[in-house]
């Protein structure tokens, strides 16, 4: 018995070391990147001899960078609105309903999430040209919206599957037609899933590079701008821009995680 406990402890310490090493692996690069943004020199790399805030001042006074931020946020919001409406609608169709061709419909629904990035980007590029959509904001919004639909749909379907059917039946018995029952029972019940997945879509769209790159016009989104700057060399200015983007996305992500956890707990209680 003692032997077993000893063995387990050895295992646990070994695994804990691996876990913390992995934490280092995922955090250290980002931390280094943030530190570099404060270096008072044009050259990225160690050692750092003096520090400055000039790169950040530069970012917040650079009209082009600020415009790009706004442009990316606008694209993220618009595409998320579309994804959420369409994704929820498809989820309502697919969840708990048996009909001919349901399996195929489901497969079609998840397709955009499974297509590798580059292939999805050029397929959208070709299709946009065929439809006559010019590269630019509209094309990016459309591509992001289509790409993000499966994520909304899967999350909403998961939530929908836990909706107590009795509530809908009660509403119907009390005389509500299906539409009113949906608006007053189903939709409020889905709110946490819809909000959670829309935050996820916002982040996906804001962070997306490959679709924005191939469908963009002359105005870059933020990842495309960083990519273009990187092609011409590393500079602490890029670190400052990337850090601002990082703080923004991580903050939104953490907030959303806490929010969904809380609402899940509430609805379980």
């Amino acid at each position: 018995m003692n032997n077993r406990v000893e063995l387990n402890r050895g295992n646990r310490i070994f695994l804990a070391c691996i876990y913390w090493a992995f934490v280092l692996y995922v955090f250290v690069p980002l931390i280094l990147m943030i530190i570099m943004g404060f270096k008072d020199s044009k050259f990225i790399g160690f050692p750092i001899r003096s520090w400055t805030l000039d790169w950040y001042k530069g970012v917040f006074s650079d009209a082009e960078v600020l415009y790009t931020f706004g442009y990316s946020v606008a694209i993220a919001i618009l595409s998320t609105l579309i994804s959420v409406i369409v994704g929820t609608w498809i989820a309502v169709l697919l969840e708990g309903r048996k009909f001919w061709g349901r399996a195929v419909t489901f497969a079609l629904m998840v397709l955009p999430a499974l297509v590798p990035g580059i292939i999805s980007a050029i397929a959208f590029r070709i299709y946009a040209r065929w439809l006559g959509i010019e590269p630019g904001m509209g094309a990016i919004v459309w591509a992001h919206a289509v790409h993000n639909v499966p994520f909304v749909c899967l999350v909403v379907m998961a939530r929908l599957s836990t909706l107590p059917k009795s509530q809908i039946e009660a509403a119907r018995d009390l005389g509500a037609d299906p539409l009113i029952a949906f608006m007053r029972i189903t939709l409020p019940y889905l709110v946490p899933a819809i909000l959670g997945s829309s935050i996820f879509c916002l982040l996906l769209s804001f962070d997306d590079f490959v679709r924005s790159f191939f469908l963009g016009g002359y105005e870059p989104t933020l990842p495309v701008l960083i990519f273009a700057m990187l092609r011409s060399g590393m500079s602490p200015e890029i670190n400052a821009i990337a850090t601002v983007a990082l703080v923004l996305t991580a903050a939104v992500g953490i907030w959303a995680e806490r929010f969904t956890r809380r609402t899940n707990k509430e609805s379980q209680a």
Binding site: L30, G45, F209, I226
Partner: peptide, 24 residues
């Protein structure tokens, strides 16, 4: 572990560039 994964592809790629560079 989730926190770094909310950060975009390009930013994380850049972070690796800094980590592994000759003066990294």
């Amino acid at each position: 572990l989730l926190i770094p994964f909310w950060v975009g592809e390009i930013v994380r790629t850049y972070a690796i560039m800094i980590l592994l560079g000759n003066t990294g």
